[in-house]
Computed example of a mutant assay.
Amino acid sequence: MLRRRGIGAVIAEPDDQAGHRRRRGSRGGRPPAFDSVDYRGRNVVERRFCHLKQWRGLATRYDKLAVVYRAAVVLNAVIAWTRRLSDASCPDDDRTTQ
């Protein structure tokens, strides 16, 4: 179904699955396409989700309302963004704030 829609695989095919496909010969089908650039982007997204889940309220979903949950996600993103900005060097002077 994904191939019909033109969606390629982002995760590399496991070695054992590739072995099974080769063993089956022509009946094994073709290997799924793999895009290494998309795979690197997927890694960044997965690491960000893991970071989000470090907040107990986000991981356990205690909030009843979706708007409150979304506000917590946005707050977490803003905090991470400001930390990233504070770790970057200041363009006006040559020092790094920590």
Rank of each mutant, 00 (worst) to 15 (best):
A77W: 02
E13R: 10
I79W: 12
V68L: 03
V68Y: 07
D93A: 08
Q98H: 15
K64I: 08
R27V: 13
R83I: 13
V37P: 00
W81V: 03
S86M: 15
K53W: 08
A66V: 06
H20R: 12
E46G: 01
R24L: 14
D38Y: 00
N43M: 10
N43K: 13
L58M: 06
R47P: 03
L65N: 11
R4G: 08
I7E: 08
F34A: 05
R4L: 11
R48Q: 13
H20G: 01
L85K: 10
G57M: 03
T96M: 06
V45D: 02
D93N: 12
R95T: 13
V73D: 04
R30D: 04
K53E: 02
L85G: 04
E46C: 01
G57L: 01
E13C: 14
L2G: 08
S26M: 09
A9D: 05
G41V: 02
P31E: 05
A71D: 00
S36P: 14
Y39C: 14
A77Y: 03
A66L: 05
G8S: 12
Q98G: 15
F34P: 02
R61Y: 07
C90Y: 03
A72L: 12
G41E: 07
P14T: 06
A33D: 05
G57Y: 01
S86G: 03
R61Q: 07
M1S: 11
M1R: 08
D87S: 11
L85C: 09
R24K: 15
T82P: 00
V10F: 01
D38I: 09
R5W: 14
S89W: 08
R23K: 15
A71I: 01
V78L: 15
N43W: 07
R3T: 07
A9S: 14
S89P: 13
W55Q: 08
Q17S: 01
V37T: 12
T97Q: 11
D38A: 14
D35N: 13
D92Q: 12
S36D: 07
D63E: 09
D35A: 01
F49R: 11
D94Y: 04
I11H: 12
Q98A: 14
A59P: 00
V68W: 02
V67Q: 09
Y69K: 02
W55V: 11
R27L: 14
R40G: 01
L2I: 06
V68C: 06
G57N: 04
A88L: 12
L2C: 05
R95Y: 09
H20E: 09
R70T: 15
R84H: 14
A72I: 10
A80T: 08
G19L: 07
T60H: 15
L85T: 02
G29N: 03
V37M: 01
R5M: 10
R56K: 11
R56M: 01
R4N: 07
A72V: 08
L58V: 14
D15K: 15
P91H: 04
V45K: 11
I79T: 13
R83A: 09
G19H: 05
D38L: 15
W55G: 00
Y39R: 15
